[in-house]
Design a protein around this nucleic acid. Sequence first.
DNA 1: ATAAACAAGTTTATATTATAAACCAAATTT
DNA 2: AAATTTGGTTTATAATATAAACTTGTTTAT
Lengths: 94, 94
Amino acid sequence: MFPKLDPILHSELRLAVISLLAGVESADFTYIKQQTGATAGNLSVQIDKLSAAGYITVEKGFKGKMPCTTCSLTPEGLEAFRNYIDALKEYISH
Amino acid sequence: MFPKLDPILHSELRLAVISLLAGVESADFTYIKQQTGATAGNLSVQIDKLSAAGYITVEKGFKGKMPCTTCSLTPEGLEAFRNYIDALKEYISH
DNA sequence: ATAAACAAGTTTATATTATAAACCAAATTT
DNA sequence: AAATTTGGTTTATAATATAAACTTGTTTAT
């Protein structure tokens, strides 16, 4: 009746990150931080978890001389996001 | 951009309880436990939190000789549920 | 009548999670 | 060259979720 909600996605900040990434090719740390309003520490941790789950890829490079961490959604991440939305609907739409 | 998700409702079990109660006049502990598949201990704690938040009312009585705890959604609970759904949509529908 | 098993929860202990504070290295500004 | 800013990471703490253990009373079996 109530399907299990993927605990990786059932987190306000991680969900926001995935939601953001679902709409774009990729996004860098600073942009995600700004868009979500998260603190850097929290975002760093949550990005690690999403990455460890295989839901996003993280590439570390430089923009000019400044370090720049770029994230993008993996196909598994997108599928997990869709599954999560479907599961949620069981909770919110009856 | 990403609205805050009410932490009282952003919990798998509490959300299931509210979702269940949103569809009925009232429901008792045992029924909620069975429908959600929760353990009694977990359900007891989460019902307390929902009650403390004013989202549900809890009435303790007897069904025959057996104790029976009956829960129902308050108007505030229903409104919080609706707000939560609206907030969620900002995360899942773009 | 008494012991064993069951029902309906509650309390408490533990594991997990979320979050911010403190920190670090390099770059930029003054 | 000192101070500040950028772009993060690590670590410590607070909050949450969850199950295990317990309680109170009831029903069933002996």
